[in-house]
Amino acid sequence: MGLLNKLDSVDGFDSGNIVLTSVESLLNWGRLSSIWQMSFGLACCAIEFMAANASNFDMGRFGVIPRPSPRTSDVIIISGTVTLKMASRIKRLYEQMPDPKYVISMGSCANCGGPYWEHGYHVLKGVDRVIPVDVYIPGCPPRPEALLEGLIRLRDKIRHQTMVKHTA
């Protein structure tokens, strides 16, 4: 069992009826309204990330609650430079989050290596080389408003996820 196993999966339901789509939208609404994030900061982007959590920008109004463990998190915000040493840890933390899970790549470093794109011998050239990224946020570092925008994009993505098999 497990309805959410069918989410964006190849063995999804063949067709959605009125009950299924209603349940789906209810579940999606619930999930997008309580995106629990993993408390996880890497570099200078984490400063903006903290500002976004604090009272001026108040990411908590979107139901984003910092969690101390990946076991209870829905989203991991890669906020900063991913060094090669950190990449294996990030990979493991991502693997230890329960499904369905999302990744926000925040800032140029996490997107593509940023200023270390050429000579950074120690920097992973984009966190999407180890984990799948849902939302990329450009900027060096992005302002908290940009992070909020990325979060809203992620909410839109969750809102339109479906348990019905995609038809071409």
Binding site: M1, G2, L3, N5, P70, S88, R89, R92, E95
Partner: peptide, 21 residues
């Protein structure tokens, strides 16, 4: 919960959590 939750256990997910170490 049993009706809704996805169950996708992997060996790495079931490791002990020690901050990624």
């Amino acid at each position: 919960n049993w009706l809704i939750r996805p169950a996708r256990p992997t060996p790495e997910k079931q490791l002990i959590y020690e901050c990624g170490e």
